[in-house]
């Protein structure tokens, strides 16, 4: 992708048959929050080497590596989107993962669905949660760390309750940090 217009923009990379409409929703949310252009890339098949048989989950760490290897260094940040359940070697599950101050991030909708918690499907709830997690992980690529403010998007949510309790915006101190690094 040699197009120079893509530099400094944010790329949205859907894996497998991730719904296209949702990818565009993410692109819109990212433009709104980071004030940078976002482009949805062609979907790519989920690399099977990222599957961890012992855990029956996919490794977000390996997925990040895959993204980094695939997208040339000159490009700007990439946010991978998937529907499979993600884990890391130390964490039982993650909603997403990012390279702190780096270029790549990934978010899974697997545990953001109402169905996962035995509730009826709800698109609005799913998109709201996804927006928060995407902004959160991209915040990490900008070098931002977790915030203690429960309503701030950079608050570390380790349960769906905490995802729901926060907003998809930065608290004032985090917003200042974000605009300084962007």
């Amino acid at each position: 992708m040699p197009d120079s217009a893509l530099v400094d923009s944010i790329l949205v990379l859907p894996f497998g048959d991730f719904p296209e409409a949702v990818s565009y929703f993410v692109a819109g949310k990212v433009e709104e929050r980071f004030g940078r252009a976002a482009h949805v890339l062609e979907p790519v098949a989920l690399p099977e080497e990222t599957f961890v048989p012992a855990r029956s989950q996919y490794s977000s760490t390996l997925l990040l590596r895959y993204i980094l290897a695939r997208i040339p260094k000159t490009e700007s940040s990439v946010i991978g989107l998937t529907d499979v359940d993600l884990c890391t070697p130390v964490l039982a599950f993650v909603f997403g993962q990012a390279q702190l101050g780096g270029r790549a991030a990934v978010v899974s909708t697997h545990r953001l669905h109402q169905e996962y918690y035995g509730l009826p499907h709800n698109d609005a709830v799913l998109l709201e949660r996804l927006g928060k997690e995407v902004v959160h992980e991209l915040g990490h690529t900008c070098g931002m760390v977790h915030c203690q403010e429960r309503r701030c998007v950079m608050y570390f949510s380790n349960s769906i309750r905490e995802v729901d309790a926060k907003q998809d915006t930065f608290c004032p101190p985090c917003a200042r940090l974000a605009s300084a690094t962007l």
Binding site: T61, T88, P89, V90, L91, Q97, A98, Q99, L100, H140, V145, H146, F156
Partner: peptide, 17 residues
């Protein structure tokens, strides 16, 4: 003693501030 654990735990802790 496992590299992957060291890396992934370090990353996660740094993210957490």
């Amino acid at each position: 003693d496992e590299l992957i654990i060291r890396e992934s735990l370090t990353d996660w802790l740094m993210e957490s501030g």
